[in-house]
Design a protein around this nucleic acid. Structure first.
Length: 612
RNA sequence: GCGCCUGUAGCUCAGAUGGACAGAGCAUCGGAUUUCUAAUCCGAUGGUCGGGGGUUCGAAUCCCUCCAGGCGCGCCA
């Protein structure tokens, strides 16, 4: 595979080569000897051994840029690591390499890069294609479908929907940057029993006027009321099921009412997506797969993957609504180590989420032929996705489905609950974020349009970054101040660093037309070198984020970059550098920093602005 | 009851494939602006990495166990 390579990767390769040339007494061989014994594979040895040879990037250490611990090798030879490291360090010839020195320290081989060569490499990597620095072609020729956002449109868009939406969008951006063809599919929840509830509630308590005037609030009110009344009137649940049955069997009046619910919600969601800058390549409701459902069930039964059986437990609340002849269709999964079967058809003949999800997967495969499908869906559905994956396998659908999970957003007082009206609306959060950003930008010497634009970019950036900068697996307790922080480790901090780069470059253009590729030997300050190293580490972060489906790896990397830049900014005058050469060199550094910050933020779906 | 996830500084979090003294932000305290935007920078205080065992030359990271919190467990999505 042709991979775009970057300075640090090449440096690791060179260390590997140096050690390999030393002969058999070396770490990589030793590690391979020790660990390959259990492996039956006879794959090419080099990549294998190489993967096991830890060549680590070292941060914040004066005596090393890259290090190789030789403990495992020493052990394999019955020797001692300190002595082995010294022996190797003494016999390595670094002439002509990109390393200035190697030293043995307590069992580690510490390599120092030749600063000038390293700077020159990083600059070269960057100047090759400044706008695409950090990209590569590892995904070329492969398609990935990402299912993200996928809100339930019977309910208002709450902060709970935010995570799937922005994590999914970030993954879309990141994977695209690595050359994959990515299809973002918003699988709108516009079908199912919940709509039965809504239709039922509207028939009883709904108002045409309200639906026109304030659709979301009205629907939410009906939804909440339904659940309140259902607590004392058990027949409501059954009525709702019947409404859904009428919907699914094509009752015309029911359909047209449902149509209006859907329309009013999607209009509103569209507005939020615009605000957030979130885009999809495909946006289809669950209802779009309706005509495939019967086929899914038939084929599942025909293949033997599924079977009909008597319902195990009575549905609803009464207990005897299930007629003696009624059956459910299930896919048993005990053979896959999952006790609970997946139900494809209810005893009243209607479909379930899973049925529609299988139909959706089939559609996606037919239409886009993906190598894999990602589902950015909350952790509470983990069991369901294990069932779903296992079911697809039994149905002979070979495309892997990866559940990209994330933790729930909770309120300090507990779980959010639409049906109890305990939700925080995303739109309120966005408004508040923008309001707080406005307060800061208020006394800037900028036009009011400019201030409004900046506030929007900063406020929304803060919301997104608060989420994307932490591990998605952890649950989040919603907190206004935390989500909307404008200082410290936050989007505005990164955006601000970016504006500083723009400001310098803007002013420099008055005096000289553009920054030239500098002579790397100009750099001497530790802050300059630290900044270059920070830039050099960016490409690895993008790959790590893509491999683990974890955008926060990029967030962490560019936050470090912004900090390194801020320190540099404080210590190293650019426009008033001591010599013109130094000025040009620093200008280029500023240019690189700004670009990488903007690129990293863009991958997270966060915009930048020239002034703040 | 069973299964999955989480537990790192007062608070919120980084620490991928085990590696050299566990790092940030916020908060607190003290400094920095005739110089490219102070939404900034520099410094200080602050940690039995939930507890206990184990594996290893080496464990926040792997294994066991206990504790705490969250989520889930056939006709909701």
């Amino acid at each position: 595979m042709r991979l775009t390579s970057y300075a640090l990767t090449r440096a690791r390769d060179e260390i590997f080569g140096l050690l390999e040339a030393q002969g058999p007494l070396l770490p990589y061989t030793a590690i391979a000897d020790v660990e390959d014994r259990t492996d039956a594979d006879h794959e090419p040895e080099r990549p294998n051994s190489r993967a096991r040879l830890a060549i680590r990037d070292v941060e914040d250490r004066a005596d090393a840029d890259l290090t190789v611990p030789v403990f495992a090798a020493a052990k394999a030879h019955g020797g001692n690591a300190v002595a082995l490291a010294e022996k190797i360090a003494g016999s390595l010839d670094l002439a002509g390499t990109r390393f200035a020195s190697v030293s043995a320290v307590k069992g580690y081989l510490n390599f120092k890069l030749d600063q000038t060569k390293f700077c020159s490499e990083v600059i070269h990597d960057f100047s090759r294609d400044p706008k695409r620095y950090g990209s590569c072609i590892r995904g070329e020729g492969q398609t990935i479908v990402i299912d993200y956002s996928s809100p339930n449109i019977a309910k208002p868009f709450s902060v709970g929907h935010l995570r799937s939406t922005i994590i999914g969008q970030a993954l879309h951006n990141i994977l695209s940057y690595l050359g994959y063809r990515v299809v973002g599919d918003n699988h709108l929840g516009d079908w199912g029993t919940q709509f039965g509830k809504l239709l039922c509630a509207f028939a009883r308590w709904g108002s045409e006027d309200e639906l026109k005037r304030n659709p979301t609030a009205h629907l939410l009110g009906l939804y909440v009321r339904f659940h309140e009344e259902a607590k004392v009137d058990a027949s409501l649940e059954l009525a709702a099921r019947d409404w859904f049955r009428r919907l699914e069997t094509g009752d015309e009046q029911t359909r047209s009412l449902w149509q209006r619910f859907v329309k009013s919600s999607t209009t509103e969601f569209g507005r939020i997506y615009d605000l957030l800058g979130v885009k999809f390549d495909s946006m289809r409701g669950e209802s779009a797969y309706e005509d495939r459902l019967a086929g899914v069930i038939d084929r599942a039964l025909a293949s033997g993957a599924a079977r009909r059986e008597k319902p195990g437990a009575a549905m609803g609340t009464g207990g005897d609504e299930v007629g003696p002849n009624e059956t459910v269709v299930i896919i048993p999964l005990d053979d896959k180590g999952i006790d609970t079967p997946l139900i494809l058809q209810k005893s009243d003949g209607t479909s379930l989420y899973a049925t529609r999800e299988i139909a959706t997967a089939e559609y996606r495969i037919e239409r886009w032929h993906p190598e894999k499908m990602l589902y950015v869906v909350g952790k509470e559905q983990e069991l369901y996705f294990r069932q779903f994956s296992a079911a697809l396998a039994k149905l002979g659908i070979p495309v892997p489905c990866i559940h990209v999970t994330f933790g729930l957003v909770r309120l300090p007082e507990g779980r959010m609950s639409t049906r109890e009206g305990r939700v925080v609306f995303l739109e309120d959060v966005i408004s508040e974020a923008i309001r707080r950003a406005e307060a800061v930008v208020q006394d800037r010497d900028l036009s009011s349009e400019e201030k409004a634009r900046i506030s929007r970019i900063v406020g929304i950036g803060a919301i997104k970054y608060a989420d994307l900068s932490q591990n998605r697996i952890k649950e989040v307790v919603f907190d206004w101040d935390r989500m909307l922080a404008l200082d410290g480790d936050s989007a505005p901090y990164l955006q601000y660093a970016y504006t500083r780069t723009r400001s310098i470059l803007r002013k420099s253009e008055v005096q000289s037309p553009k920054s030239k590729v500098p002579s790397p030997s100009s750099f001497a300050l530790p802050e300059e070198i630290a900044l270059l190293k920070s830039i050099a580490r960016f490409p690895d972060a993008v790959v790590a984020a893509a491999e683990a489906y974890e955008p926060h790896r990029i967030a962490g990397r560019i936050y470090r970059l912004a900090r390194d830049f801020s320190s540099f900014y404080d210590k190293a005058p650019v426009l008033k550098a001591e010599t013109p050469e130094l000025r040009d060199a620093r200008l280029y550094l500023v240019e690189m920093t700004g670009r990488v910050l903007a690129t990293g933020l863009a991958l997270l779906g966060i915009e930048v602005t020239d002034r703040m």
